[in-house]
């Protein structure tokens, strides 16, 4: 592990299923859209501080992935590369709708729903964060949230999002008149 470069395949034994060949495969799949592979750095940081090393111990684990458009996916991470392009197995999208009047004390804070998807290849730039799911806690839904059918929750979440977006838009407009440029204009990250 110590003397590997980020261009080396992960050591055998760690991500056996596809993890090994992940990098090049994903890059081919993404074709010309993908940024070119980085040149060999002259002075390599210690192996521990590379993207690859950070993702290595998340491989084959059940993860929560937050995307830039606000989607939350859970799935098993099977493959990845240095741009954090990811391959997920048994992906499930979970939507949350927090009730507008909910507070910390309310019994029902909101609803959630699941939608199974299967295998996903996620382009790295769309990833906000990856979280390893604690399998002990995974069986219980988040405290105060109840499951409803997907259509209802999705509708609620969309309405909420539209509301937030409108709010954000007025805020950005106001800021723009004061000479501030928002860093993510036109995009509400949730």
């Amino acid at each position: 592990m110590e003397n590997l470069t980020i261009h080396d395949a992960p050591p055998p034994g760690a991500p056996q299923q596809g993890g090994r060949a992940g990098g090049p495969h994903i890059q081919q799949a993404l074709g010309r859209g993908a940024p070119p592979p980085p040149q060999q750095p002259q002075q390599l940081p210690p192996q521990m501080f590379t993207t690859a090393a950070q993702l290595l111990d998340l491989t084959d684990k059940k993860l929560l992935i937050c995307l830039r458009d606000g989607r939350k996916l859970t799935g098993i991470l099977r493959s990845w590369d240095q741009f954090a392009n990811l391959v997920l197995q048994s992906t499930v999208e979970r939507v949350y709708a927090t009730l507008p009047e909910a507070t910390d004390e309310s019994a029902v804070k909101g609803y959630y729903a699941d939608k199974p998807h299967g295998i996903f290849l996620v382009r790295g730039e769309n990833v906000l964060l990856l979280g390893e799911i604690d399998l002990d806690k995974d069986d219980e839904p988040p405290a105060g949230f109840e499951e409803r059918d997907y259509k209802t929750v999705d509708q609620m979440a969309k309405e909420r999002k539209a509301l937030d977006r409108a709010k954000e838009k007025t805020k950005l407009k106001k800021l723009a008149t004061l000479g501030f440029e928002g860093e993510n204009i036109g995009e509400v990250l949730l």
């Binding site: 929560l64 937050c66 939350k72 979970r94 949350y96 927090t98 804070k109 909101g110 959630y112 979280g131 390893e132 799911i133 604690d134 806690k137 995974d138 219980e140 988040p142 405290a143 105060g144 949230f145």
Partner: peptide
């Protein structure tokens, strides 16, 4: 709420 069962 989605990060409630996440450890790292």
């Amino acid at each position: 709420p989605h990060l409630s069962s996440v450890k790292n």
